[in-house]
């Protein structure tokens, strides 16, 4: 039985479809990233999971429990940090954590120890007696994460936890999420692809309310990215002419001559989508190599240039990669 299962979640805001039959699973102990551009539906999905927003259709299962019939169970077991941390600026950090622990029903005798653990994990010792309103954004974010830990829920959910933080705080947050993995399942959303690639073991890519991919991160870059592009080294001469001939190979859609070195020509090949998809089971490299040899080429090396997660993301969402490349 899966740990968490999202089953055909649908949500409308008026006429606008925000989530379109989203289904995926989150395993115990995963750091699962929800990846998508702003407005993709990540926050809506998290709010539904945190039992703060009702779905119009679909169900979320936590092992054998259903969200629709057990909202309190979901609330008790999820530590949720929304994009804007829910902090009272007039409260001291310790008092705030005490308040959150009380709200979440932590027995009186355990509150002190739980707060101590959260403060230890977030390294908030010096700030414990300070007013939240006087803390920096990075520290506030840490207090926000601490409030998800004081009642020790098995699942922590963080909505865009690195937004607006300085580089040092981002690094802290990244390490913290990795650290949380030891004791908790973590779901976190981000539109920063780099963050996801560094922190998550698994990810679900959401675009305009639809799920484009779910699974292990490496799989996404491997299955969806690598096989579409190849770099080829062939032995020979007159490489510009060979570039034209390479385009006639059946599974090659585009070919670009990159340069020559020691009588080896380097080419960048874009493979024909249909051919790649036809041969999902087989490695497309075998087919390409066979075609090259049959057509008289002398291939020396063929490999998939490592596609960045960013590039794959923009391929999948049909967004223009070149417009974003400089910004990432």
């Amino acid at each position: 039985m899966s740990y968490i299962r999202f089953d055909k979640i649908v949500k409308y805001y008026g006429d606008k479809l925000a989530l379109d039959e989203l289904s995926f699973e989150v395993g115990r102990g995963q750091v699962h990233g929800l990846l998508g551009l702003n407005g993709a539906g990540k926050t809506t999905l998290m709010s539904i999971f945190a039992a703060c927003l009702a779905p119009d259709n679909g169900e979320i299962f936590w092992e054998d429990r259903k969200l629709s019939s057990d909202r309190i169970f979901f609330k008790k077991n999820i530590g949720f940090l929304p994009e804007t941390p829910p902090l009272y600026p007039d409260m001291k950090v310790y008092d705030y954590l005490h308040f959150v622990a009380e709200l979440n029903g932590v027995p009186r005798g355990e509150i002190k120890a739980n707060i101590g653990n959260a403060i230890d994990k977030l390294q908030l010792h010096k700030q414990a007696s300070r007013l939240i309103g006087n803390l920096s954004k990075g520290l506030k974010q840490r207090v926000g994460v601490a409030q998800t830990l004081v009642y020790n829920p098995p699942l922590i959910m963080l909505d865009e936890p690195t937004v607006g933080l300085d580089p040092s705080s981002i690094l802290d947050m990244r390490n913290l999420i990795k650290d949380l993995k030891k004791d908790h399942t973590v779901i976190f959303s981000s539109h920063l692809l780099h963050e996801v690639s560094l922190v998550c073991t698994h990810l679900s890519l959401i675009h305009e309310g639809k799920l484009l991919f779910t699974g292990e991160q490496e799989k996404m870059t491997a299955t969806l990215g690598h096989q579409k592009h190849m770099e080829l080294l062939i032995q020979g001469d007159d490489f510009p002419a060979q570039e034209v001939l390479l385009r006639d190979i059946s599974c090659v859609a585009e070919c670009q001559f990159l340069g020559e070195e020691n009588q080896l020509g380097r080419f960048y090949l874009t493979l024909d989508d249909r051919k790649v998809n036809e041969n999902e089971e087989a490695d497309v490299r075998y087919i390409l190599l066979k075609d090259l040899i049959d057509n008289g080429f002398k291939p020396v090396s063929l490999y998939s240039p490592k596609e960045s997660l960013e590039k794959v993301f923009f391929q999948l969402t049909d967004a223009d990669w070149s417009n974003h490349e400089e910004n990432i």
Binding site: C52, I72, K75, F80, P86, L87, L103
Partner: peptide, 13 residues
Amino acid sequence: KQGTLSLLLNAPI
């Protein structure tokens, strides 16, 4: 206004 209502609404109360 300050987004703390979500803290109350997320709590098991």
